[in-house]
């Protein structure tokens, strides 16, 4: 059976940042430690998008309650969590109210394993907003290994033709761009304090 692409959380956040203010994507929660993973996703989103990220539980929620939560405020990032999974009626109801879910800030659907089938089956209008942007959170919840960290630092260094030390120095004197790649770079160097 074909599977969705697995991406670390910072990569998911980076994709969302590229999608712009009204981006939508879905993340399949890992089976183990999903609460910790959700916290981590929230942190990555705040760091990369440089805006607050909230978690909203889809169940229980009424039309009015969800509307209020999504639109007050409507420009931060929200993670709509399906918890342990939603019933088909709930997906149908969410699908019907898709227009009401549209907002200025990005939306991430945090889905339990069985939810993608229900999303496709009972919420085709919501699914169409997401397209192919459905990703699996890695089994480690998106935490990078040391090798992955070093590889990413090397990529960034080659791409921007800067060394790690130069990036830190520029950040310290306020000359570094606030583009997400530089934020990511500082976080990977454990210098998130300079962001």
């Amino acid at each position: 059976m074909p599977e969705f692409s697995t991406e670390p959380f910072f990569e998911i956040a980076r994709r969302l940042e590229m999608q712009g203010e009204t981006g939508w994507l879905a993340v399949l929660a890992p089976v183990a430690d999903s609460t910790a993973a959700l916290d981590q996703l929230q942190t990555e989103l705040q760091s990369i998008l440089q805006k607050p990220a909230r978690v909203i539980q889809l169940e229980p929620s009424t039309f009015e309650g969800l509307l209020e939560a999504l639109h007050q405020p409507d420009d931060d990032a929200v993670i709509l969590s399906s918890g342990t999974g939603l019933k088909r009626e709930k997906w149908r109801s969410l699908d019907i109210m898709r227009s009401a879910l549209e907002r200025k800030g990005p939306v991430i659907l945090w889905l339990a394993t069985g939810d993608v089938a229900n999303l496709v089956e009972h919420a085709p209008n919501l699914r169409s907003f997401i397209g192919g942007s459905i990703f699996l959170a890695g089994p480690d919840g998106g935490i990078m290994t040391e090798t992955e960290r070093q590889e990413r630092l090397k990529q960034l260094s080659e791409h921007f033709q800067l060394t790690d030390q130069e990036v830190v120095r520029k950040a310290e004197v306020g000359e570094l761009s606030n583009e997400p790649e530089f934020v990511e770079w500082l976080v990977l160097l454990d210098r998130g304090d300079l962001v």
């Binding site: 981006g23 397209g131 791409h159 033709q161 570094l176 761009s177 583009e179």
Partner: peptide, 25 residues
Amino acid sequence: SVTAPEGQLSRRDKYRAFILAFNPA
């Protein structure tokens, strides 16, 4: 401020403009 070498951020800008023009939502 932008301090990346010339050409690097223009690549990002080019992609970003493209991605924003193709926003399904």
